[in-house]
């Protein structure tokens, strides 16, 4: 990297002195590898999702893609019932998983934050599914959900959880929350620990009971954590794919298909990159809109 010769560092540098120029040159060299990689594998593919959706591009096609206007978008909205099934399923998934996982994670964090002997062991146990890969967890639960499986035997049910359209999506939801809740527990816990002990002491001097302390001290103190968890769970819930691919392949009769699963089926399974890109763009716009609404809703008091 560039060597700096000047020792003038205390006074404010003007643009264009040898020192600043060499500093800027050094900075560009430092940042260049990351920048090239991000442009190649993030910026360009994202921009391509905007253009490919308007073409008939196919994987492995000999001819170059042609512009087809809004054909792909109209096909999604008018002629593709699976798209609407996928949209409905992912909305249900997001609306159930976000409050369920976020809320349960807060309960776990409050339990873990107690002054009890051996509490670290519980924290480790609650976190264990998070370090287990989603493919493994999905496979394990697929086994447990079998008609002759652990869940039916243990609780005395006789339900074909993953093959019944009315129970398939709820089964995926339960398993997803089980896997992910430990992650958000840790985030809540970190948020809890930023709240100063003196606030609780002041509240208890004022005669606040534990419930009042929770409402008046804990909940307001957790606001930044809440915003973070709310937005990140939503984004990752929208991206639901692995569980579906491993456990149900979108079935039975589209009861568990999701937008990402449908995109991958069209783009990779059938090689229809143009249509899959149009679906990706619709998906991207939905996620972006929801995220912006969430930001707007949670911003006013910050």
């Amino acid at each position: 990297m560039s060597k700096t010769t000047t020792t003038n560092t205390t006074t404010k540098r003007r643009r264009g002195t040898p020192a600043t120029r060499s500093e800027a040159r050094g900075a560009y060299l430092f940042i260049l590898p990351a920048l090239i990689l991000m442009v190649m594998f993030l910026v360009i593919p994202v921009l391509m999702s905007f253009t490919l959706g308007f073409t008939n591009a196919r994987l492995g096609a000999a001819t170059s893609p042609e512009f087809v206007g809004f054909t792909n978008f109209l096909r999604a909205l008018r002629d593709d019932p699976t798209f609407w099934d996928a949209l409905r399923n992912i909305m249900v998934f997001v609306l159930v998983v976000v409050p369920l996982q976020g809320g349960l994670a807060l309960v776990l964090a409050l339990l873990i934050n107690q002054k009890l002997r051996g509490i670290t062991a519980f924290r480790v146990l609650f976190f264990m599914p998070v370090v287990t890969s989603m493919v493994v967890v999905a496979m394990l639960w697929k086994f447990m959900y079998q008609r002759e499986g652990l869940i039916n035997s243990l609780f005395g049910f006789d339900v074909d959880w993953l093959n019944d359209p009315s129970t398939a999506l709820p089964s995926v939801i339960v398993m997803s929350v089980w896997q992910g809740v430990g992650f958000h527990m840790i985030i809540w816990l970190a948020g809890l620990q930023t709240i100063g002990q003196e606030l609780y002491e002041a509240a208890s001097i004022d005669g606040a009971n534990r419930w009042q302390q929770f409402r008046e001290v804990t909940l307001p103190g957790l606001r930044p954590t809440f915003v973070f968890i709310f937005i990140t769970i939503t984004i990752s819930a929208f991206s639901l794919f692995t569980q579906i691919d491993v456990m149900t392949s979108g079935g039975p009769s589209n009861a568990t298909t999701t937008l990402v699963y449908h995109i991958i089926q069209m783009g990779s399974g059938r090689g229809d990159v143009g249509y899959a890109s149009a679906l990706s763009l619709i998906f991207f716009m939905i996620v972006l809109t929801v995220t912006l609404i969430q930001r707007a809703l949670t911003k006013d008091e910050d």
Binding site: F41, L42, P45, S49, L59, I235, F241, F283
Partner: peptide, 19 residues
């Protein structure tokens, strides 16, 4: 700003690009 873009939204264009 790139952090809010889920990988799943550009996975297929990316497959096309790298291929």
């Amino acid at each position: 700003a790139t952090l809010i873009v889920p990988f799943e939204t550009f996975a297929i264009p990316m497959v096309y690009w790298v291929s």
